[in-house]
């Protein structure tokens, strides 16, 4: 029950994009087309869940060695190495999946949602299962936000917007309205 609550709270109540402000760059960057948004969403779900599991063990190791101040460096290097490894693995073993996800993988390394989640897990001192489920919920929430946003944004191309609002600013205002809608979930999980 507790694990379900963790997923729902990470997915809807504390949505990474709308209330924690993590992963805004890919959120604004790859939301122009539905296909790429879905691809990015899937890639993030996979990478985030696995990195959370790896990072949990590393965090325990660093704590037992008393080297907690190295947390940031170790986490980012492990994420970067893991992403590189996944990219090579997919290229060799599953070219069709690589074609659909491949270009998003390098972008994920600098996605602050991944590092943010790993650091959050370590700050909240979650146990292993909680950490993995937190990652699952958060990344699914990110994918949902990205896909909803891409669906709205595709329609902007049909409308005649005032010139200064084109591109970035209308995207930000839309994100603000979506974020207001997601605030409706607040209070669902204490």
């Amino acid at each position: 029950m507790e694990l379900v609550l963790i997923i729902i709270s990470a997915m809807l109540v504390n949505n990474f994009v709308f209330s924690r402000f993590l992963g805004i760059c890919p959120y604004l960057g790859v939301s122009k087309k539905m296909d790429s948004a879905a691809g990015m969403g899937m890639a993030v779900i996979f990478v985030m869940t696995v990195s959370a599991a790896i990072a949990w063990f590393l965090d325990k190791l660093l704590i037992s060695l008393g080297l907690q101040f190295l947390r940031t460096i170790v986490f980012i290097l492990v994420i970067a190495a893991f992403v590189q490894f996944v990219e090579l693995f997919l290229k060799k073993n599953n070219p069709s999946l690589y074609d659909s996800l491949g270009i998003y993988l390098p972008l994920i390394t600098t996605n602050c949602a991944i590092l943010g989640l790993v650091v959050l897990n370590s700050m909240l001192k979650l146990n292993f299962l909680e950490a993995v489920f937190h990652a699952l919920g958060a990344s699914t929430g990110f994918a949902i936000a990205l896909i909803i946003f891409a669906a709205i944004r595709e329609r902007f191309e049909l409308y005649d917007l005032p010139k200064p609002f084109e591109d970035l600013s209308i995207a930000l205002v839309t994100a603000g309205l979506l974020s207001m809608a997601f605030m409706g979930f607040q209070g669902m999980v204490k």
Binding site: L168, I170, L172, V173, A175, G176, S179, M180, M183
Partner: peptide, 9 residues
């Protein structure tokens, strides 16, 4: 949060 997005927009 919505205020942040809208103001920046």
């Amino acid at each position: 949060p919505p205020g942040a997005f809208i103001t920046l927009g």
